[in-house]
Structure formats: C-alpha cells, structure tokens
Design a protein around this nucleic acid. Structure first.
Length: 586
RNA sequence: GUCCCGGUAGCUCAGUCGGAUAGAGCAACGGCCUUCUAAGCCGUGGGUCGGGGGUUCGAAUCCCUCCCGGGGCACCA
C-alpha cells in the first residue's frame, strides 16, 4: 500500500514538473507513513513540506497542487491537506476488506513476502565457547538471532544460520584439563582443583564418562601432574600460570593423542548439550562452523598471507601485526604471537574472509555487547582484504539480568554458579522465554523478570496474546455447540456491516501486519512485532468484551466471525515468527 | 583517560532513520462476572522526554557541551 501511494505521489510529482511548478531535476525520496491518529487518515506524506523550499511555495499550497495532480486510485477514498502541509490519504473500506481476504486465503503465508527476492543472508549467532552449558545471557542472543533469521526468511531472503564453534584455544585447554583433573579425582588421586579451572558439575559428569571409557588407564599421581607447576593464586602464586602449567603437564603425561581424546570428549559432550538445548528452544542451525577447521584447511595462513601482500602488516617485538589503525581502529592488532601461535583474531579474520568467499549478499554477526570493541578490527581486516565490509552488519545484544523476587541472579561459567538457559526454560517455559527475550530492543539492557514470565495473568504479555488466540478458537467451539454456522463467503460479502470502532481497529491491524513484519525484519527489530501483537490482542479483548459474535443476525455473525478468524491468523503467524506457540485452549 | 550503548509517567519500556496534542503495560484509585473463558474489559490520576546551548517551518529524535548508569580498550577467547 505504501508503495502504491508513493507511486501515485511520484506521478503527481512528474505532472508538476511538466507544469513547471517544480524544477525538472528535482530528485527526492518520497516518504509515506502510517498516521498515528486515525483522524489524519491512514497514511500521510510530508512531501509538500520537504519540497516547499525548492518550489518556493507554501507547503499547503504545494500540497493542494500535488493532490490535484494525483491519478485516481480505487484504493483511495479521499486525500486532504492537513496541519502544516501533510497530505493525508484515506483508504477505501474495500482496501481493508481485501486485507481480511488475504489473511484468510494465504493463511500461514499472510505477512510473508518476496522483498528479499531470494538474496542470501548469513546469520551467525550465539557462538558461545563450548566450555559449559548455555546460560541465560546466551539465551537472549539465541532468541534474538533465531527471530531475526526467521523474519528475514519471511521476507524471502535465503537465510543461512550458523554457529561458530570455538573449538581451539586456551579456554578449551582449560576445560580439557579441568575434565582430566576431575577424572583423576574419580581414580582416587587426591589433588587440589585449580582456582581458575571450570568447576561446574558438568565437568564432573564428563570426567565420569572419561573414567567409564578408560578406567584407570590415564591415571597419574598428583606428584607427577604437579611437577614443576607454579603455585596457584591462593598459595601466593598466579592462577593463570598455574593452570597453564597444569595444561602443559597434562599434555606431556597423556601425550598428544590421548590428550586430544580427553579434549574432544569435553568438546563433544558440551557441544551436544548446547545443540540439544538450542534445538529444544526452537533455535535451529544450518551449520556448526569449526574454528579448528580454519587452521586445518590453511585458511588462517592464507588470510595472513593475503594481508601481508596487501601491505597492511609489520613485525614488531617478534610478533606479526595488522595495521588496523589504517582503517580507523584504535590500535594495531597482533595476528601471530612471538611464540609463533596465531591469535583468536587471526582465526576471526580467516572466518570472515571465508564468509565473504561464500558469496552472501549480506552477513550478519550477532555478538554480546561486550565484544563491541571488536567490530572495527574485523571490518578493518575485511577492507584490507579488499572485501566489501559494508556487507557485514554486526548486531550487539546487551546482557540480560535475571530477577527473581527483586533479587538479581549471579552468573559466571567458571565458578559453575549460574542459571542455565535450560533451567530458565524449565522454569518459565519456552514460550515466555522466547517472547521476553525479544520484547526489548537488542541494544537495550534487559531486566528479565522471572516472576512475571511465569505468571499466568494478563500482566504477562505472552499469556495475554496467547489467550486472545485461544479465545477466538473458543468462540468457534461455542458456535458449533450452539449449532450455528460460519460461512466465510457470506462473511466477506458482509464485511460492510462492521461499523464499530473496535472492528475498524482490528481491520487496520490486520492490514498493517505485513508492514510490521517487513519493518521488523529489515531493521532487525523483533520487538516491533512483539509490541504489535500485544496491541492486536488488546484490540481483540476489548472487542470481545464489547460485542457478541454469535448473534442471531446471520450476515452480521458471519462478518464478525470472518473478522476474528483473520485476526486469529495474524496472531498465530506473528507468534510463530517469534517462536512462540499459539494454543487453541489454555 | 578514551570509545560504544543507554537516560522518556512511581516501575518496565515503545516512540515507525526531523513531523501533527509524547504512548503502552504494570503499579495506584474507582467500576464491570445468571451473557461466546474475569487468564478479560471500562474509567481516573500521573511527564521540565537527564541538564544547558544550537541547527529550522518543526527536535524525545540531528550537532555541541556537561551530568548519571552499563560495557569495551590483551601477543585471552
């Protein structure tokens, strides 16, 4: 509709140019927006105000001329000038009835479109280190990323959902060593667990699996293990040096092959856990991309070489640096350390180079807000490689803080003291969790109120919306009990009978739904859809309380049932896009 | 110190990339259940849009500056 109206305005513009009212070279983007206030019509354009300076005419006068030049349209009932020079469009009732017909004919497809025209978009999200179960902070990235991908999918983009698995690096070595130490404990070896190790119960579980598989085969004494290892922090030592020492000793005692088996057991167990968790949360991936594979396939080396050829690198203090400051970064970054090991950043350059090579039209990275300092250097690397860094959108998700009874819940993977995503899902349910996570703009800090998410009352927006859907289903059940019929064709015929303000509001919302999906998708803002659904549910509940649907008058009854059926379809489709179920009864 | 994100009703948040009298939900107060689920609805009160400058027909929105909260500034991942 927006497009249709701006097309009309565009033709009017051409006409005024031909008349000499406007310079022929006038080039302007025509903006048509939904009005906030129904008394201002359905859509409004500020075109006349924007052009008034160029045309050297008063906005209202110019608006009159534009209106006079508008070609006729079957969708538009009236056009008027208002306020300082707005052009307000009033749509015909047929335009709205058409939306109802669309909702019912298209069903689940209503709101979907082909705006994306099959362009490929990669969405990478969550990508939490596989060093422990997902916690509630990851949950927000999961819900947000999945919804952004689903929204883009609804617009006809070809989406590729990806999880970057950090299966290399020091954190994973710490995990492997933590698992090994728990295993030794199960073998009866007495030892003090390092302060910097992973202490969660899941590490014991993996240690137990290891023990089941190998028995005492990997057993070494505490003396052998701690030989030459620097003291831990509580004993006046350094916890980092201590854990690094333990990693080294573990590698030596176990040898490369067996160490790798311990390492992989930890990795696979946790990854499997994460995978299942996300799957149950309705978050599906097309690909789990291994960081280790980048080194194995030589992609990291190739990325570094390409950067060296580009001339944006130099050596200093025995390390190889990337001159990211040439592209606006705060400081230059190391790619290869003085000990010869590549940095995480080097892997990330290779990973993004790989994404670009795969030829996506757009690449979206969804990161925790604590990684925002990382954006400039990744974009810098892409520019240095000669790639189009503007293809990459990095969306930053702020942390979610859980509240229970006003009390803040602490979380830290290392200490093992945290609320996992699974615990959250079990406590409040998938629906509430998915909805609450996307209720707020992603860059907004979020207070996640567990008590509210659990409450089965109108305070809880999820229940409120689902209840609207269930209530409509209930009306149709009642209809059958009363041996009444719903004739959709007759309903469509009689939509003209719907003259109540409540009905008008629902008609507008039904028609607006595809626009909401479009904006929410293109701006990566699922919260807009969440708010829309809340408003739509409110409009329905209000209507429900004010009027009977199952009335004697068959024509009116059919019209009302057709209307609420369309509303139900919209609620169902919207909830579905958010990963929330739409139950028929509650 | 510097950079990023926030600061809108008592609370939690919207505000459609400059538009028409700043909105919603909770909370508070007052009403509505022999009627399709009261898991609902109706009504009332509540605001210097953090402060101060500026840009223009017009600013919560853009620019400058200051204040407050959170985060980032590794040869960690």
């Amino acid at each position: 509709m927006k497009q249709h109206l701006s097309q009309l305005l565009s033709e009017a513009l051409q006409a005024l140019k031909a008349q000499g009212v406007l310079p022929v070279d006038t080039d302007i983007a025509i903006s048509v927006e939904r009005t906030r206030d129904r008394s201002h019509g359905d859509f409004a354009s500020n075109l006349a105000m924007v052009l008034s300076k160029i045309a050297r005419r008063k906005p209202r006068e110019l608006a009159e001329q534009l209106i006079a030049a508008l070609p006729p349209s079957g969708q538009v009932r009236n056009v008027e000038v208002a306020g300082p020079g707005f052009i307000n469009f009033f749509l015909t009732t047929e335009a709205y009835h058409n939306a109802v017909a669309q909702a019912l004919e298209l069903g689940q497809a209503y709101g979907r479109s082909q705006i994306g025209a099959g362009q490929s978009v990669q969405v990478e999200f969550v990508s939490a280190n596989p060093t422990g179960p997902l916690h509630v902070g990851h949950g927000r990235g999961a819900a947000y990323g999945a919804t952004v991908a689903d929204l883009l999918d609804a617009l006809g983009y070809k989406t590729h959902r990806e999880y970057y698995v950090n299966d290399a690096g020091r954190q994973m070595d710490i995990l492997a060593t933590s698992v090994y130490l728990r295993y030794l404990d199960l073998c009866g070896v007495e030892l003090t667990f390092p302060s910097n190790g992973y202490k969660g119960d899941y590490v014991w579980d993996i240690g137990a699996s290891l023990h089941r598989k190998y028995g005492d085969e990997l057993k070494y004494s505490a003396a052998e293990l701690f030989e030459g290892v620097p003291a831990d922090a509580p004993a006046d030592g350094d916890k980092e040096e201590h854990i690094d020492g333990l990693i080294e000793r573990s590698k030596i005692l176990l040898d490369a092959t067996r160490y790798r088996e311990v390492f992989d057991l930890g990795l696979d167990s946790i990854l499997e856990n994460i995978r299942r968790d996300l799957e149950e949360f309705g978050v599906h991936y097309d690909e789990w991309f291994s960081e280790r594979s980048l080194a194995d396939t030589g992609a990291v080396t190739r990325a570094i070489e390409r950067l060296q050829q580009s001339g944006y690198t130099y050596e200093k203090d025995g390390a190889l640096w990337f001159r990211s400051t040439d592209f606006g970064d705060e400081k230059d970054r190391v790619m290869v350390r003085d000990n010869g090991q590549t940095t995480y950043f080097a892997s990330d350059i290779a990973y993004h180079m790989n994404k670009m090579e795969r030829g996506y039209a757009r690449v979206i990275d969804i990161w925790g807000a604590d990684h925002h300092g990382y954006v400039p250097r990744v974009k810098a690397a892409l520019r240095a490689l000669g790639d189009d860094a503007d293809k990459l959108d990095v969306l930053l998700v702020q942390f979610a803080v859980l509240y229970r009874g006003g009390e803040k819940a602490q979380m830290s993977t290392r200490s093992g003291d945290f609320v996992t995503l699974r615990e959250l899902r079990q406590e409040v349910g998938n629906d509430a969790a998915r909805f609450f996570y996307v209720m707020r703009k992603c860059e907004q800090h979020m207070d996640f109120d567990l008590d509210l998410a659990k409450s089965e009352s109108s305070d809880n927006p999820v229940y409120y919306i689902q209840y609207a859907h269930a209530r409509i289903a209930s009306v149709f059940r009642q209809m059958q009990e009363k041996s009444l019929q719903w004739d959709n064709a007759a309903g469509m015929e009689n939509l003209g009978r719907l003259s109540e303000a409540h009905e008008d509001a629902l008609l507008v919302s039904i028609a607006r739904y595809p626009e909401v999906v479009e904006v929410a998708a293109l701006q990566h803002e699922p919260h807009q859809l969440a708010h829309f659904l809340r408003d739509l549910a409110n409009e329905f509940h209000t209507y429900y309380n004010a009027h009977q649907f199952l009335v004697e008058d068959a024509a009116l009854r059919n019209a009302r049932l057709t209307l609420i059926k369309a509303a139900q379809q919209v609620i169902s489709n919207g909830l579905n896009l958010l990963g929330v179920s739409a139950p028929d009864s509650m």
